[in-house]
């Protein structure tokens, strides 16, 4: 799972902008979304992302569904491609 070829990311004071320049679609996310984008950029899969987020600052929350939904949304809009490798 990684960003598609024409995706650009920029931080703004109101959030993080993800811009798919081929379809010219813009997506804006908050700090948590930006953290996930960072993990996608590092090549982490879903399982690793969930572990990382729980470990660092969301230890008491069940977050896998939220992360999966977010990633699905990115996929639907062609921001990312490839397998997310869901946890069994």
């Amino acid at each position: 799972m990684n960003f598609t070829e024409h995706v650009k990311i920029r931080n703004e004071k109101f959030g993080t902008v993800i811009f798919e320049t081929l379809t010219e679609k813009i997506f804006i996310t908050n700090e948590t979304g930006a953290r996930i984008l960072g993990l996608i950029g590092q090549g982490r899969d879903l399982s690793q992302m969930v572990d990382e987020l729980q470990k660092n600052y969301l230890a008491n929350q069940e977050i896998e569904k939220d992360v999966t939904d977010f990633i699905d949304c990115l996929k639907e809009n062609n921001f990312i491609a490839g397998e997310s490798r869901q946890r069994k």
């Binding site: 811009f19 813009i26 804006i28 996310t29 948590t32 979304g33 977050i63 939220d66 939904d69 977010f70």
Partner: peptide, 16 residues
């Protein structure tokens, strides 16, 4: 967990 995500309009004139 609050993951906020909003889709904006396209930047240029290419509207789908």
């Amino acid at each position: 967990m609050n993951i906020e995500a909003r889709t904006e309009r396209s930047i240029n004139s290419a509207i789908e």
